[in-house]
């Protein structure tokens, strides 16, 4: 506004000024509305995150949180050469237990989210069709998701129980297995047990998100295809799938974020099994159980970085349209 020349007619000069005043007013209002949210986020998210990152650079212990000293990157990686000439490396980055947890986390996240997406989409397609009692089925299918994770984990722990569990009983009587399996304790089956429960629990959520996407597709698009006699499978891959893809990608992000920080289900269903220990589980273990508070903080910080990286990568590779601009 400073560069208005003297010869410019009056109305042209004032109009943009008035509009920008209006704009400023809007911005002010927006800030005001955002403030409570920002304060809340700072208190519950930013501050703990910042503290955790700080602790990861100290030797803080749980017994005296205030007394930690700055140790730099030692919790992540420290290389010492002993007088004997032997080199000792320590820290999270060379901890096999940590990398095992990273591997478990990603294995769990990728397998569970993939299966949940496919199943969820299938369920959504069924729920999107018209049939009697659809409302009831839609509500009923949400039940697994509505049950608190701890409850469903306990429930499944009983189903999976090696002596009294229904799963073994059923498989035995069907003749599919000849001896009882300790589903949650056995290293070779623990991950499957966790996956089964998670898929059982979260598929409804995925289905719901997919259903919302499916309902956005206008019905006459299908009618046009029907008149053209396009095969339903071709319609699914060429029409339905491309059109629900944006909704699907967002749903997958939600689930991926959830799956990468899975904790409760594993903590309850398969405690202390190295086959299922994830990043969240192992960092909690260090933070609380083993009194390696700083070490646990370093793991938490890495957990944060890894998840952030994974999601950024996903958004970038999938060109996910979070802002909805493409429509």
């Amino acid at each position: 506004m400073a560069s208005i020349t003297a010869g410019q007619p009056e109305p042209q000069a004032t109009r943009p000024a008035r509009r920008s005043e209006l704009q400023a007013e809007r911005v002010r209002a927006a800030r005001l509305f955002l403030l409570p949210m920002l304060v809340a986020l700072t208190l519950v998210a930013a501050w703990p995150l910042f503290r955790t990152i700080y602790f990861s650079f100290t030797d803080t212990s749980l017994s005296n949180i205030g007394a930690g000293k700055w140790v730099g990157f030692d919790n992540y990686l420290s290389v010492r050469t002993l007088s004997s000439g032997k080199v000792i490396t320590r820290g999270v980055l060379v901890d096999p237990a940590w990398w095992n947890a990273v591997w478990n986390t990603f294995r769990f996240a990728i397998i569970s989210v993939s299966i949940e997406t496919v199943l969820g989409l299938l369920v959504a397609l069924v729920l999107n069709a018209e049939f009697k009692g659809r409302g009831l089925v839609r509500a009923a299918i949400l039940i697994p998701w509505a049950i608190p994770t701890i409850v469903s984990a306990k429930l499944w722990a009983w189903l999976f129980n090696d002596q009294f569990g229904m799963v073994n009983d059923m498989l035995m009587s069907l003749g599919l297995i000849d001896h009882k399996i300790a589903w949650t304790a056995d290293v070779s089956t623990a991950m499957y047990a966790v996956l089964i429960v998670d898929i059982w629990k979260t598929t409804p959520f995925m289905a719901l998100l997919c259903l919302a996407g499916l309902q956005m597709i206008p019905r006459d698009m299908y009618e046009a295809a029907k008149i053209d006699g396009v095969h339903p499978i071709k319609v699914f891959f060429r029409v339905t799938l491309p059109l629900v893809k944006p909704a699907l990608m967002v749903a997958v992000i939600f689930r991926l974020l959830d799956a990468l920080r899975i904790f409760d289900l594993i903590y309850v269903l398969t405690p202390n099994s190295s086959a299922t220990k994830t990043m969240s589980v192992i960092s909690r273990e260090n933070l609380i159980d083993f009194d390696k508070f700083a070490y646990g903080s370093a793991q938490s910080t890495l957990l944060f970085l890894i998840i952030a990286l994974a999601v950024i990568l996903y958004i970038w590779l999938g060109r996910v349209d979070l802002g909805g601009q493409k429509q």
């Binding site: 006459d220 008149i227 060429r238 029409v239 059109l243």
Partner: peptide, 19 residues
């Protein structure tokens, strides 16, 4: 079936495939 009737239809909303 509609596809066997030898018809073509133009919808009010066009019903074009947006992608």
């Amino acid at each position: 079936a509609p596809s066997k009737r030898g018809i073509a239809m133009v919808f009010q909303s066009y019903a074009l495939y947006p992608h």
